[in-house]
């Protein structure tokens, strides 16, 4: 491949105590691709997200974002370099309003002291707020921007978290189970929305258990099991792969009705 991938994970390992949680994992996400990262519970998916976003340091290997090594950068520099993520459990700031949570996502874009000392809360017409409100509308979040986030329905909070992650204009957006807990209509909406955001060069890496969501959104899939990469290929072929079936079901004989939802 001649093009530089959006994300290149190369021989990355991580141990917690004696346990190898991520074991020599290598894969690349091509620029502009929408890739799924799946695997049974405890396979190391969220850990891998934490390693890429810098929540935990890696033990060995290297990680590059658009060809630039990021594994030794502090997390905030990775955000500036174009990486954004959401969390498995909603991690909105409970005491901030909807719009404040979304504006927090713009933090790395405000990189001058003047921007940091700009009294945002007093300027209802600032470009920051307008951009945040516009993003809310585009994502179909129809709530009072100044409402508390804690009272909002789960699906709405989930959407706000995705929008917040998008506010830093990332090149790579990593979503940790964005469809978990959503009803089928919300899941379909989220999929449509994620396909529509696609500004040029936006790459997606999605951890998800809902295989119909994965099929709808992602063309490629990587599968982790016990910290090892066992599949890297088109989403279409994943359910026919013997190793993947064994990882999920512990047996090679799979009832066909299970095929729709691997997890």
């Amino acid at each position: 491949m001649t093009d530089t991938p959006a994300l290149a994970v190369n021989a990355v390992s991580k141990r917690f105590g004696g346990l190898a949680v991520i074991d020599n994992v290598s894969f690349a996400v091509p620029l502009g691709a929408r890739m799924a990262l799946i695997g049974p519970n405890g396979a190391g998916k969220t850990t891998l997200f934490n390693l890429i976003s810098g929540v935990h340091p890696i033990d060995s290997g290297d990680i590059a974002l658009n060809g630039r090594a990021i594994d030794k950068m502090p997390p905030r520099h990775r955000v500036s370099a174009g990486l954004a993520r959401s969390f498995q459990n909603i991690r909105l700031m409970p005491h901030l309003s909807v719009i404040e949570n979304i504006m927090l996502g713009q933090h790395t874009l405000a990189d001058s002291p003047a921007a940091l000392l700009n009294p945002l809360a007093w300027q209802r017409n600032s470009v920051w707020r307008q951009r945040a409100e516009e993003s809310m509308r585009n994502a179909g979040i129809d709530v009072d921007p100044d409402a508390a986030v804690t009272g909002l329905p789960y699906g709405v909070r989930k959407k706000i978290e995705v929008v917040r992650a998008l506010m830093s204009c990332p090149r790579l957006l990593m979503l940790d189970e964005p469809a978990a807990g959503l009803n089928p209509r919300e899941t379909a909406e989220l999929s449509t929305f994620l396909k529509s955001v696609g500004w040029e060069g936006l790459t997606l890496l999605v951890v998800e258990h809902d295989m119909s969501f994965v099929h709808d959104l992602c063309d490629r899939t990587v599968v982790l099991n016990f910290g090892r990469l066992i599949y890297n290929g088109p989403t279409q072929g994943v359910q026919d792969n013997a190793q993947v079936r064994e990882a999920y079901l512990g047996s090679r004989r799979v009832p066909t009705k299970e095929a729709g939802r691997v997890a």
């Binding site: 976003s53 810098g54 929540v55 997390p75 905030r76 955000v79 500036s80 993520r85 969390f87 991690r91 909105l92 700031m93 927090l104 996502g105 933090h107 790395t108 917040r164 830093s168």
Partner: peptide, 9 residues
């Protein structure tokens, strides 16, 4: 932790 991932120093 979430603030760190938002890029807050």
């Amino acid at each position: 932790e979430a603030a760190i991932v938002m890029g807050v120093n």
